[in-house]
């Protein structure tokens, strides 16, 4: 099954988690996807192994970043009519507060979808989207065919 067929199947069945089966890293940290009236909602579970600081305790900053990068790539693929595998060019994250060991959510906005480059903004939060724990921006290269 190619990428386009996989995405079409997920959209038809309304089960986007099937996409995650193809991303071992997303399973490793525990990412889930659902669709609601505001678009794609990504959630990072509370696996104890995602902790980076056992004293607070707090999520590892790298896990929060990895979750946001997974979300950005999936949002880009799900939002385009001709999906290709997005290749990360660069990723910039601002940490706003420590991530507690609670479910973490993310939403993405595709700021620009060009022929070769996509710019995706991501916001991650725990209790309220108005109180983000991190914001990030990813650039992806889209030139390769799926």
């Amino acid at each position: 099954m190619n990428l386009n067929q996989l995405i079409q199947t997920c959209k038809q069945q309304g089960d986007f988690n099937a996409m995650l089966e193809f991303i071992p890293y997303a399973k490793f940290i525990g990412v889930e996807i659902e669709e609601d009236d505001q678009g794609w909602l990504f959630t990072l579970g509370t696996e104890p192994s995602n902790v980076g600081n056992p004293i607070s305790p707090a999520l590892h900053g790298g896990v929060v970043a990895g979750f946001m990068e997974v979300a950005a790539a999936l949002a880009q693929m799900l939002s385009t009519t001709e999906p290709t595998l997005p290749k990360i060019i660069d990723f910039s994250i601002d940490y706003i507060s420590a991530g507690k060991v609670e479910p973490t959510h993310a939403r993405c906005s595709l700021v620009r979808q060009g022929k070769r480059i996509a710019n995706v903004h991501v916001v991650a939060w725990q209790s309220h989207i108005e109180q983000p724990i991190a914001t990030a921006r990813a650039h992806f290269l889209l030139s390769e065919e799926a």
Binding site: P24, Y25, H60, G62, V63, E69
Partner: peptide, 24 residues
């Protein structure tokens, strides 16, 4: 570790792992 690859049949290492390494 095969659990840390991205969406690619060749199994390259996911960017999130590299960010985790660099943060650490």
């Amino acid at each position: 570790n095969p659990d840390i690859s991205g969406m690619d049949p060749e199994g390259y290492v996911h960017g999130g792992i590299l960010t985790t390494m660099m943060d650490t």
